[in-house]
Simulated scan of single mutants.
Amino acid sequence: MSLSGELLAFVSLSLVAIIGGMLLINLSKVVHMVIALVFTFISIAGIYVILSAEFVAVVQILIYSGAITIIMLFGIMLTRHNDSGEPKASAARRIFTFLGIAGFAAAVYFGIYNLDIPVQPSALHESNTEQIGLALYSKYVIPFEVTSVLLLVGLVGAIILAKKDEQEGDRS
């Protein structure tokens, strides 16, 4: 295996994504968890750039790193979440978690190491934004619209729950 810049960038971005995910699980303060999640989202956007999916990378940064993160922070503020953390996990739990992650990584590695996928010609690099638009608004238009309605229902439900908690707090 030769060491190329693309491989080095992929490994670096993958490590940032994995470390961000592990920090998300192990940090105790919610705002710090959101920051770790942002690092994970941005590194995944970098992997999309390596895969020549620039449009998807920009959408990843705009939607996930921007909008979803802001919605999470608003949710934290609306629910008046105190920033005190949970008690620290025991050493045995941390070791068990690490072994589980290492076992999963080994299973994935050995599962794809000798995988022989035949090479098929594709035109992914040519007008990939147009291809995404055509597929999204022709073949996948119903799931796209259902997803937008589902997100709207989730947002309205979150607002209703936050207002209900606020009204119950006023009665106390």
Rank of each mutant, 00 (worst) to 15 (best):
V49E: 10
A17T: 12
L23K: 13
F39V: 04
S43G: 13
A17E: 01
G46Q: 06
S12M: 11
L37T: 04
G20R: 08
M22N: 11
V31W: 08
E54W: 04
G21L: 13
V16N: 04
V16R: 04
I50A: 03
I18E: 00
G46H: 06
V38Y: 07
T40H: 03
G20M: 07
V56H: 00
F55C: 05
L23I: 05
I47G: 01
A9Q: 11
G20N: 06
K29E: 10
G21T: 12
V49D: 05
I19N: 03
L51Q: 10
L27H: 09
F10D: 02
L24W: 03
I44F: 05
V49C: 08
S28L: 11
V38D: 10
A17K: 08
E54P: 03
A57I: 05
V11K: 08
K29D: 09
L27A: 01
V49Y: 11
L23Y: 06
I44N: 03
V56G: 01
G46D: 01
I25F: 14
L23S: 07
G46A: 08
L13T: 06
S52D: 14
S12E: 01
L27I: 08
A57S: 14
L15R: 08
V56N: 02
F41Y: 14
G20P: 09
G21K: 08
S52N: 15
L24Q: 07
L27D: 01
L37N: 05
I18L: 15
I18H: 02
A9L: 13
I19F: 12
F41P: 00
G21P: 06
I25E: 01
L13Q: 04
Y48N: 09
S12N: 04
F10K: 10
A53S: 12
I50E: 06
H32K: 11
L23P: 00
G46M: 05
F55Q: 01
G46F: 04
L27P: 03
T40M: 14
L13K: 07
V56D: 00
V31R: 15
V31E: 11
L13C: 04
Y48K: 06
A36Q: 04
S52I: 00
